[in-house]
């Protein structure tokens, strides 16, 4: 593999072209090259889920994906889905239910839950817990997060 790679991809709806070190992972690329610091790094070995982002419609771990692998891809980060209001009800429920404390896990958690809500809108509490069990949160103990998903769902259904 070459030391450097030229990549072109779409990030939050905008086309981006950069030359990156081939070893750069996607979350570092987003954070340090594009300044999208909402995606966080908690472990860099694929366990904590803090780096979760959406690539071509599915969530991926930004620390286990090379930036070069995102060539041609459509990437959405917490900044993008916040600006489009796509996950606004979920974010509101997180705030209302205090489902975030330090907020470090939150961007990854929100993108993960957004995928669950799309794939299985009627997930039970156990299924919600199961689906987010690859996202580490040290602060909340998770119960408020599960509650927030239910709140967002109820409000969504009533609106």
């Amino acid at each position: 593999m070459d030391m450097y790679s030229d990549i072109t991809l779409t990030v939050n709806g905008e086309s981006v072209t950069r030359c990156v070190e081939s070893r750069t992972n996607l979350v570092d690329f987003l954070r340090y090259e594009l300044g999208l610091t909402g995606s966080h790094v908690g472990c860099e070995h694929g366990v904590c889920g803090a780096c979760t982002i959406r690539m071509d419609g599915r969530i991926v771990r930004g620390c286990l994906t090379l930036a070069a692998q995102a060539e041609g891809a459509e990437v959405w980060t917490i900044e993008g889905v916040s600006e489009t209001n796509e996950i606004r009800p979920l974010q509101k429920a997180f705030v209302e239910r205090n489902a975030l404390q330090c907020g470090f896990c939150t961007p990854g958690m929100l993108l993960t839950i957004a995928e669950l809500m799309e794939r299985k809108p009627d997930a039970s509490r156990e299924e919600i817990r199961e689906f987010i069990s690859g996202n580490f949160c040290r602060c909340t103990g998770y119960q408020a997060i599960v509650d927030a998903v239910e709140i967002a769902r109820e409000k969504g259904a009533n609106s």
Partner: peptide
């Protein structure tokens, strides 16, 4: 009362120390 700093964090707009350049 909800936390005044929570919406910012929920949008990924926090400033954690690694975000400082």
């Amino acid at each position: 009362v909800p936390r005044p700093n929570a919406p910012r964090l929920a949008e990924g707009r926090g400033t954690f120390v690694d975000d400082i350049e």
